[in-house]
């Protein structure tokens, strides 16, 4: 179920501005891969090229190849909407749908994709909420608005919403940056659980978090502002944090840069 992602020479543009250049990397199935790097180096942009969300911004486009197992996501005839169904995403700020209840938020993806059978939905909602470690907190109030939860609960609700459609890959863009340490811990535990079934890519500014949860870490950087961001190196997390091959990586991790 979980799949390998291979990016080959990915360039992403906002209008005429090239935000990332020549990114090539492989993300192994059933692993957590962390992307780190200074602000503005294109981590979010790269993440959004994986599920073809980059192109919804007016004027934005992508060059290069992103393979999901053997399928080229940017190949001719590939439907961006279908790609997004296989690749889930969790955003930096929790964004539950404000007009929907907790239940409806989790069921949204399934329901809006045509699944109406209430038994199937009930099961999927419970499974996803359990998966997101939220079930016990909300099982009594599934009909209450999702926006009435705490920030950490909302973020886990968004994770439940993302995994309810059973994606093969889960992308997380700084999922814990707005959360307290306890919620952060809950979500980190969750990632370790989830990687049994999904391929996970997480962007984080928190080195300890990257070191704690990820199997592999990729370091992005940019030469100067206005220059595109590039992938400097990607390797096992252990190697990156103990003995990186690039001086720039070491400088960044030890806090001498960025």
């Amino acid at each position: 179920m979980s799949k390998r992602i291979v990016a080959e020479d990915v360039n992403a543009f906002y209008g005429s501005f090239r935000a990332i250049a020549g990114v090539s990397l492989t993300i192994e199935p059933n692993t957590v891969t962390a992307l780190i790097g200074p602000s503005g180096c294109g981590k979010s942009t790269f993440l959004r090229t994986i599920n073809r969300l980059h192109e919804v911004i007016p004027g934005a486009r992508v060059e290069g190849k992103v393979m999901l197992d053997s399928e080229d996501l940017y190949g001719a005839g590939v439907d961006a909407v279908a790609v997004r169904r296989t690749i889930g995403m969790v955003f930096q700020r929790p964004n539950p749908f404000p007009t929907m209840s907790i239940y409806d938020n989790v069921a949204a993806g399934l329901r809006l994709n045509g699944i109406k059978n209430s038994k199937v939905l009930d099961e999927a909602v419970e499974r996803s909420l359990r998966g997101a470690n939220l079930w016990n907190e909300v099982k009594e109030r599934l009909a209450k608005p999702g926006a009435g939860l705490s920030g950490g609960q909302q973020q886990r609700l968004c994770i439940a919403r993302a995994i309810a459609v059973e994606p093969q890959v889960l992308l997380m863009d700084e999922p814990c940056s707005a959360l307290d340490p306890i919620s952060t811990l809950a979500i980190e535990d969750l990632m370790t659980d989830l990687k049994q079934r999904y391929t996970i890519v997480i962007v984080t500014h928190n080195m300890q978090q990257a070191a704690r949860v990820s199997d592999r870490t990729g370091f992005f950087s940019l030469e100067a502002t206005g220059e595109p961001g590039r992938l400097i190196e990607i390797d096992t997390t252990e190697k990156i944090f103990s003995n990186p091959s690039e001086k720039r990586t070491e400088d960044y991790i030890t806090g001498r840069f960025g």
């Binding site: 919804v56 909407v81 997004r84 889930g88 955003f91 993806g109 919403r161 993302a162």
Partner: peptide, 14 residues
């Protein structure tokens, strides 16, 4: 907010 639209796109909604 644009985030709501993106959340919806990310779920695979046209």
């Amino acid at each position: 907010p644009a985030e709501l639209r993106e959340a919806s796109y990310a779920l695979g909604l046209p």
